[in-house]
Design a protein around this nucleic acid. Sequence first.
RNA 1: GGGAGUUUAGCUCAGCUGGUUCAGAGCAUCUGCCUUACAAGCAGAGGGUCACUGGUUCGAACCCAGUAACUCCCA
Length: 880
Amino acid sequence: MIIAKTYSPKEAEEKWYSYWLQHNFFRSVPDEREPYTIVIPPPNVTGVLHMGHMLNNTIQDVLIRRARMKGKNACWVPGTDHASIATEAKVVAMLKERGINKKDITREEFLKYAWEWKDKYGGIILEQLKKLGASCDWERTKFTMDDDMSEAVIDYFIRLHKQGLIYRGVRMINWDPQGKTAVSDEEVIRKEVNQKLYYIRYYLAGAESEYLTIATTRPETIMADAAICVNPNDERYTQLHGKTVFIPLINREIPVILDEYVTMDFGTGCLKVTPAHDLNDYALGQKHNLPIIDILNDDGTLNEKAQILVGEDRFAARKKIAVLLDEAGALAKTEDYTSQIGVSERTSAVIEPKLSMQWFCKMQEMAKPALDYVLDGDVKLIPEKFVNTYRHWMENVRDWNISRQLWWGQQIPAYYLPNGEYVVAKTKEEALLEAQLKNAEYTIDDLRQEDDVLDTWFSSGLWPISVFDGVRNPDNAEINYYYPTNDLVTAPEILFFWVARMIMSGHELRGQKPFSNVYLTGIVRDKLGRKMSKQLGNSPDPIELMGKYGADGVRVGMLLCSPAGNDLMFDESYCEQGRNFANKIWNAFKLIQGWAVDTSLTNKNQIAIEWFESRFNQALVQIEDDFKQYRLSEALMATYKLVWDDYCAWYLEMVKPAYQPGAEKQSIDAETYAATVGFFQNILKVLHPFMPFLTEELWHDDLFGDREALDCCIVAQLPSIGEINTQLVAEIEIIQQVIAQIRNVRNAKQLSPKEALPLAVKINSAIDYQKYEGVIKHLGNIVALSVVNEPLAGAVNFIAGTDEFYVALNIEIDVEAEKARLEKEQEYLLGFLKAVNAKLSNERFMANAKPEVVENELKKKADAESKLKTVEDNLRGLAG
RNA sequence: GGGAGUUUAGCUCAGCUGGUUCAGAGCAUCUGCCUUACAAGCAGAGGGUCACUGGUUCGAACCCAGUAACUCCCA
């Protein structure tokens, strides 16, 4: 029994979430049913819930709940990833607070602290998801560094290595001097920044007063210069061919080399070549056999090879060297210059190109089949526009740097031998056996395992397989049942980082796609279009939001503004709308609760009941179709309108008993009552995926009788689509117009809704208005409905469909105003008819248009003529 | 520099394969209502040169070309 005037979500949310857990409704084990599987995009173990997670997980929960209610064996696997760089940074910070320096402890000690940190803070985000109502199978919760998950990663590494898909090599990589690790190309964010272009003089050897000028944004790297390069076709510099110059300040002599690579009209046309600190210069250096002089330490400070400014940070050095150059007369000028630099996604440090020995995964061979899955439509990207982006990336993919100079992660299973060679094996013991094939003398102490760990994406790339233990045990019952999974819901930003790599690993390990549909959500922005971020402070706290509007309200709010693949401009007012909707449903429920069956009454609401049933089925068709196309916000809106407009505003008003003073409950006939309660229960089912808590709460009210413990909305089966009486729906639409018009008349004439009015109709259509008399009288407060054959003079009139209606009032009609209104209507109809007739008399239209289009035009013509006649009759009536 | 996308009411968005009285929805706004479920509400109403310019077509928000603005991805 419910009495509260408004719905208060908090209590219901706690109650029903634990009830669901207690009764194992989220649990999935393989059985005879068709599986429906989603693996969660594992959030960072360091993460706390933000609006992006809210959106993403709301969508997943809607999908999984709906699948469950369609009788599928629904399995949503939750978990987190170990986020090597972010977590390691957090742990280092924690140690620092305790006065411990990472350098002073061993790898094992560090990992102990890291696990301690993970155990303490790692589960926060998953707990937060429960507040949202996420119906994950929590018994399946995985972490990418669980023992079994790590073993899968190692197995996969070994497998790829064996196939020659993983190699070790010196490459120019993206170095994060703050995280002190390499990061992949995908983890570098390009940013436009205002810099300065420094023009620096290099004096020629043997001609002390002659110099050339180069332009650079990085003067602090001149000490690493290996050459100056000019374009051989540049006539300005022919005298420099074969010469050498001195690097300013340190006076090291370097050659002038020739290469067409240099753009003659950029800067001065003289390019300083610094192979150790620039990707292009590196290539040039290789070509011209230049030495590589690396003047930077791992933390971005200058080392002794720089000779000057040793120990200074690169940016401090830049400022200082500009002064030194100026003092030495080597700085010709500086200019403002905008260019793009790369910053680390994880630490925001400016990326330093650095030559380094790293592990790489060959992408070309793996990319080809992964591209085909998408191009063939085997894996569908939603919305489709991302196929192009995906293709572009996959066709231009570069090898993936998979090693990270960190401790938190899976340590690469490569073992170095004293002679510099290495073997790859699962354990040190196995590695020794491998090593002994090369040289029988080796002992276990000769082996030294690679220090680096694998990129986190290397392990999350296995996620849909490894959560079902499909890497280690490729033929186990779980993987065979749940894989390939059905839908993946994620952000477009990680289409390559993650989605592509899952497709690659799925193909590699199982010869199968990992999922059938990838639903790509947009970025949650504030209403000014700015991305939500901690720095801006423009992101609401999801937990607070749910406290304010209820989890259901927030879920609805998120979905209302989330077209697939487009960014969404989030505003709290959407949550408010969601909360209001919840309240509306609550109150509709309260209304029905106030009714009591009186068996002596007969059912006078058959029309209303049949009509709503048809509308309900129409809505089901619509909703089903929207879901098929992953248009979740449209499906929600169709549901919203079904409930608010059709059920509450029309149906309940049609059948609602008149207030019976003194009665505790309002009497209603048994048939109407049963139908109304039945409709409500069906509505709860349709609403459940969107608003799980409210619907479960109402589901268990006595209104629906006694429920068994397992009879819950969460596992109720969605209603199947029944018959639709389209004629009835169409006719009620006219009736709704009639009622709106009557209300309009009241509004315009300032009449009270309590004053009953007489209504006359002149029927031109085939509608049997007797049938709807009850509805019209009830909703329009009409005292009598009469049928007339002639316009009723002196009455207010309107048209609904093609039929004419007259409301006789005891007040004077403003003839002039009425005349003006009718003339306007007449003018419009004449214009309309003209357009229709123009089409119909156009030979080419008649020849080319499809028959149904022509037929439609004929109907439009007939309707318009009929209306026009009515208007003209009324005009004559006014005149007479 | 290359690629993709977006532009429809004050806001957020639908509008499929060109053809209804096609210019829509929700929110917001305005007017009138504390009408025994709900003011977190009810009843009504107003609001748009479909970014711009051309073209194709009997017919264009929709197709084509160009222009502009914004967004994203890649270099």
